[in-house]
Simulated assay, not measured.
Amino acid sequence: MGKLYNLVYLLLLALPVKSAAIDTPPSSGTITDSRDGRQYHWIRIGEHKWLTENMAFGLKESYPKCELCDVNDGTANNEGITKHDYIENYGRLYPWESALSVCPDGWRLPTIEEWQQAIEAHGPLYLSGRKMSKNAAELSSWGNWNGYASNDLGFSVLPAGRIDVSWDNFINYMKGFAFFWSATASSKEHAYSISMNHFQDGVEIRPRGKYIYAMSVRCINE
């Protein structure tokens, strides 16, 4: 009996053991937007997947609309950038109500609380802007945006600027500032937004006019 017991024990030891890592959710991946076939990368932060690229799906109320857009990059000279090149590098800019509906199926605009969780995952508010930003010198011209950008988790913020929708052919602060909508309204006229810029290392969270600005959109999974 003892020999039989030892044999069974040895056979059990020889069985493959399921690794805990197999059950660990993937930390990154890609999705394809079925509406236009565009592929987006994502990373996992906490309980959510976050797209690491700005939404680029063309809604009726999305910008830029012009083929050759005027760009104020913060210098004395305006630059011309084609609509195609802007979208390929920075995605599109959306008014708040459009931002609420632009994400692909299974994804949505994050609340301000979810944005705060993603920011906190990169460290304190006053440092997290650089840690969330991508070093891409060819897409930045203001000051030292890229000098301290470490993109710690691969969130890959780029300075897409924003548009005052009353001037829809003019992109302000491109190459120096990034602006993102949250899904959380702060009043009838305002919603919370997130911004980063070349002046500071941190992130600014503040209400901005829902019907005044068009800004970038990042999505999280439902």
Rank of each mutant, 00 (worst) to 15 (best):
F170H: 11
F170D: 14
I171P: 10
I171A: 03
I171D: 11
N172W: 08
N172S: 13
N172Q: 11
N172I: 15
Y173E: 10
Y173V: 04
M174N: 08
M174C: 12
M174P: 00
M174Q: 14
K175E: 08
K175M: 11
K175Q: 11
K175P: 01
K175W: 11
K175C: 06
G176Y: 12
G176K: 10
G176N: 07
G176L: 07
F177R: 05
F177M: 09
A178Q: 01
A178W: 00
A178Y: 04
F179N: 09
F180D: 10
F180W: 15
F180P: 02
F180V: 08
F180N: 14
F180E: 02
F180H: 06
W181I: 00
W181V: 00
W181L: 00
S182N: 14
S182Y: 11
S182L: 05
S182I: 03
S182W: 03
A183I: 10
A183D: 13
A183Y: 10
T184Q: 04
T184C: 10
T184G: 04
A185G: 06
A185P: 08
A185N: 05
A185L: 02
A185S: 12
A185W: 02
S186M: 04
S186T: 14
S186A: 12
S186H: 08
S187P: 06
S187Y: 04
K188I: 08
K188P: 01
K188Q: 13
K188G: 09
K188E: 10
K188T: 10
K188V: 02
E189M: 13
E189S: 11
E189W: 06
H190R: 13
H190I: 01
A191E: 09
A191M: 09
A191Y: 10
A191F: 05
Y192A: 01
Y192C: 02
S193G: 15
S193W: 03
S193T: 12
I194G: 05
I194S: 02
I194D: 06
I194P: 06
I194M: 01
I194K: 04
S195A: 12
S195P: 01
S195K: 04
M196H: 07
M196T: 15
M196E: 12
N197H: 15
N197A: 12
N197M: 03
N197R: 05
N197W: 12
N197Y: 08
N197P: 02
H198T: 06
H198A: 13
H198P: 05
H198Q: 13
F199P: 01
F199E: 15
F199T: 11
Q200C: 02
Q200I: 14
Q200D: 13
D201S: 13
